[in-house]
């Protein structure tokens, strides 16, 4: 024991670098542990009954969440969990759109056409031509294979759960989010911290993988993808009857949202209304 302080003094002098090798090794291990934890959940889970969400909470330790989950369970019948890896918002929208397109051929054709338009727009906006078009081409090919029937519904979910392909597709969504912000930079610049341009913001917050989506990203992606989304908020704040939700875009409240997400602090999952699932059961 008596020798220890002296020993650590020596180490302190020898280590000139701010971060020591041991610290780097430790941090690497911690990052690995976090990554492993994330990967224990599938990227896109199978549909589960909404009651599974209520079962995550109990009256003693999480009463506020339990009561909200119970309220929501009156309206929503199913939930699809999305992996919490920083991409969850983008992935939830991706999954929501693909589900719509699996049922709606006209919508699929429209989305293929708009994805081609985005490819040109990205290049025009100065994104590096052939890396960014590679993400676009991959996504368009994926959609075309759904259209031609090469990808069955089962194959689609397999692909959405394959890290390599799924994250490749996800990059398309990050790119169009960034492009939309850049196209509308005058409108969005006031919401970005001072001293940062829209382009810098996009490089820092939108284009890197595993970066959470903030409000700007959420708005931009929903508008860029031409969809309508409801987000049900589930947090500890007291909410008036039935909880909080926001519809984006908010300018046209008359049209029903086509994708609904459940937000819990730091995370998004996809949820489904009861009547729509009953309807699809009748169809089957």
């Amino acid at each position: 024991m008596a020798n220890e302080p002296q020993k650590s003094d020596d180490n302190g002098q020898a280590a000139e670098a701010v971060v020591t090798d041991d610290e780097i090794v430790l941090q690497d291990q911690q990052l690995k542990t976090i990554e492993d934890e994330q990967k224990s959940v599938p990227l896109v889970a199978t549909l589960a009954p909404f009651s599974i969400l209520c079962a995550e909470y109990d009256n003693e330790t999480s009463a506020a969440f339990l009561s909200k989950a119970t309220e929501l369970s009156e309206v929503y019948g199913e939930i699809r969990y999305i992996r919490g890896d920083g991409n969850c918002f983008y992935r939830a929208i991706l999954v929501g759109l693909i589900e719509i397109m699996l049922k709606d051929r006209a919508r699929l054709e429209k989305f293929i056409a708009s994805s081609r338009d985005w490819t040109r727009t990205l290049v025009e906006l100065g994104f590096p031509d052939w890396t960014c078009t590679d993400f676009c081409d991959f996504f368009i090919e994926f959609l075309e294979k759904i259209h031609s029937g090469v990808h069955t519904e089962e194959a689609v979910y397999t692909i959405l759960n394959d890290d390599g392909s799924a994250n490749y597709i996800l990059m398309f969504f990050r790119l169009i989010t960034s492009a939309f912000l850049k196209q509308n930079s005058e409108e969005y610049a006031p919401f970005i911290d001072e001293g940062m341009t829209v382009a810098q913001y996009c490089e820092q917050e939108i284009e890197p993988m595993w970066k959470d989506a903030d409000h700007l990203a959420i708005n931009s992606l929903i508008k860029a993808a031409g969809t309508r989304v409801r987000i049900e908020y589930m947090d500890r704040t007291a909410a008036p009857n039935g909880g909080w939700h926001y519809d984006i875009p908010s300018d046209d409240q008359q049209i029903a949202p086509e994708i609904t997400l459940l937000y819990r602090p730091g995370h998004y999952d996809v949820i489904y209304k009861k009547d729509s699932t009953e309807a699809s059961e009748i169809e089957n």
């Binding site: 701010v18 971060v19 610290e23 780097i24 941090q27 990052l31 920083g86 994104f127 590096p128 052939w130 890396t131 960014c132 993400f135 990059m171 990050r174 790119l175 810098q200 490089e203 820092q204 284009e207 890197p208 993988m209 595993w210 970066k211």
Partner: peptide, 24 residues
């Protein structure tokens, strides 16, 4: 990697982005 915060001294915009190439 952008998720890698141990190199806290860098400006974040210099980090790796999926659109970068070998040329970059």
């Amino acid at each position: 990697d952008p998720g890698d915060d141990k190199w806290g001294y860098e400006r974040p915009e210099e980090r790796w982005l999926p659109v970068h190439t070998v040329e970059t």
